[in-house]
Nucleic acid binder design. Structure first.
Lengths: 240, 240
DNA sequence: GTCTATATGCTGATAGAC
DNA sequence: GTCTATCAGCATATAGAC
């Protein structure tokens, strides 16, 4: 590993955003056509999409830059022009996935009614599993492999989020709005159950049939999951 | 892929068992020392143990026979002497994992009381996650990657088991011993939640601390999970 | 910005001496 | 049954012509 530890996914995220902005500014300032920057942007996003699929299917070590480039319809050297190393490309994919995880996490704070907060969060996580299963699989692969490239995100972003949500859940328990339970166990159960519909797609398809993952069926399953999680947590609304 | 479809994990399992028996018989019949057969057996099990760890960490494509052999302290050629191809070795690992999955599945039939049956099954799955997390990770990796090497096991063994358990759950619902729910969603929730403690070990360690996976803590967590799953399913004992 | 050609090392698997 | 030496192919990454 030649990269120093400032080049983490989170650090990369910041770099990327400002780098893109700088590229556009430079093009504008020189009165050059915006074309180059937009070719770059579209090639980068296309490569990221293909990389997400290959990393999901084969994990970091199993994925090859040749296969990613082939799926993107670009020569391998072109991939290395945009992303210097396979690891840099991987970190960008992890970043993108975490951004969506974060957006879903916000729905937890939509209300101080645990029925609405927990129900809404479960629905958001289920929707994410359906909309972007590949991203969830990349995340899962990374953690199964020991989460070596994600320690920073886990410790600096996910952990604080979890800890404040644990306090919120404990308050709800004190107020009698939730059954006495271990908050972390509840959160892990929500993550496990909702992400299962993305990560274990292939097993669900084999066991429950292709229809099980159709739009209508998935929506019904989502409501089943919401119902069961709410029952598991013993949630009730403050008013009632 | 040069192997024909009779060489599936399930087929391999049968072959292995009889092959081992034959090897022992032959040695006994020829009055040769038992040594050779037991060297074979011990090398094979050792290689299987190391292979399980490497496949868990890196997935099938990411794992290399060189690394597996190195961890086993054997030359790579020796590995290929016992297991002709990487795929054959992988299938044997999948078999072993499935055997344990199957043993845990039996606990579901320990009683006709859903509180005992479901609670016991959850405890068995949690115990398995703790005792053999690497096996669970291999299974998870395989399914995330599309379950291409497990279609037979899923369709011929897991699916029938699931379908008969679905009928049992439906009967319990009819008898008023479970809340009205979709049985498959309940089973998926049990699998997802219990396997989470094996597959997402690294995340749990990062978020909840190393202590979270200690023996005492894990036992407490198991009871939390049992409590929440039973509440989610609305289970009650027939007598009460 | 694109892409052919190539460097360097690792991959699964085998040959054949011991 | 063990293991060194080696194969052909694929891995990541780069050089340099266009």
């Amino acid at each position: 590993m030649r990269d120093d530890d400032t080049n983490t996914p989170a650090a990369n995220l910041a770099v990327r955003t400002s780098a893109n902005a700088n590229a556009r500014d430079a093009a504008d300032a020189a009165h050059k056509p915006r074309r180059k920057a937009s070719i770059r942007a579209s090639n980068e996003t296309h490569l990221l999409t293909c990389a997400e699929a290959v990393f999901a299917e084969r994990g970091f070590e199993g994925a090859s830059t040749a296969l990613i480039a082939e799926r993107a319809g670009l020569p391998k050297a072109n991939l290395h022009y945009y992303f210097p190393t396979k690891l840099a490309l991987y970190w960008r994919v992890l970043d993108d996935v975490f951004e969506e995880w974060n957006a879903a996490a916000d729905t937890f704070d939509a209300s101080d009614d645990p029925v609405i907060a927990i129900g809404g969060y479960v629905r958001a996580k289920m929707a994410l599993s359906r909309r972007r299963p590949l991203g969830s699989k990349v995340w899962a692969n990374e953690i199964i492999s020991g989460a070596t490239h994600m320690q920073d995100i886990l410790l600096k972003q996910v952990k604080p989020w979890m800890e404040s949500r644990v306090q919120l859940i404990e308050r709800w328990i004190d107020e009698g709005l939730l059954a006495p339970l271990d908050p972390k166990t509840l959160l892990f159960m929500i993550w496990a159950t909702t992400q299962h519909y993305a990560d274990f797609e292939a097993q669900i398809r084999a066991l429950a049939g292709k229809r099980a993952l159709s739009a209508a069926s998935f929506e019904a399953t989502t409501e089943e999951v919401v119902k069961m999680i709410l029952r598991a947590s013993g949630a009730r609304s403050p008013a009632g």
